[in-house]
């Protein structure tokens, strides 16, 4: 598995994350799509298990950018796991993975909803867990944990349902 990170370092300039316990490679945001498609094609990482957001604000001994997005990849053929970490600041963007892994669509929406990390090129970047009238991103460290926001009317989710039905081949009138 260390060979894999070395290979990534050679090809895409990845660095090993010393803080993490298991295998984790830090890569630049611009190299994400190349790296992931390389991993998917040549090393059979066929499952994107999760995308995790991290906010390092106020963390001791932390140097560098404020946020990080961690991609947990798994290969069902080689039974291998790998994590890719991308560090971003507040105004920086990460390219979307939803064209390589369709599941990344909702996972990126969740990370955007909770942390405010923007995924560039995402076709429908809107809130997944919180309601439409919510302001701010609740899992950021500077969001007051007990600050509650009322939703005044029902959330509309019909647009997505219609898209899904059309995708399945039904005609929406």
């Amino acid at each position: 598995m260390n060979d894999l990170i070395l290979e990534l370092a050679e090809k895409f300039g990845a660095a090993t994350d010393e803080r993490s316990i298991d295998k984790c490679a830090i890569i630049a945001a611009e190299k994400l799509i190349e790296t992931v498609s390389f991993l998917k094609e040549t090393h059979a990482f066929d499952v994107l298990i999760d995308i995790v957001g991290v906010d390092y604000l106020g963390m001791e001994n932390h140097k560098g950018k404020r946020f990080a997005a961690i991609y947990c990849l798994k290969s069902t053929k080689n039974t291998a796991r790998l994590r890719l970490k991308i560090q971003v600041d507040e105004n920086e963007k990460i390219p979307t993975l939803s064209r390589i892994y369709p599941i990344a669509d909702w996972q990126e929406r969740e990370v955007w909803d909770q942390f405010g990390i923007v995924f560039e090129g995402h076709h429908n970047l809107k809130r997944l867990l919180n309601h439409v009238e919510f302001e701010g991103h609740p899992l950021r460290k500077d969001y007051p944990a007990q600050k509650r926001q009322w939703l005044s009317e029902n959330d509309q989710m019909l647009d997505q349902l219609e898209n899904r039905l059309e995708h399945l081949g039904y005609k929406v009138i």
Partner: peptide
């Protein structure tokens, strides 16, 4: 939850 609240009220 706050997302559920309008449904309960209705």
């Amino acid at each position: 939850t706050f997302k559920q609240a309008p449904i309960l009220k209705r």
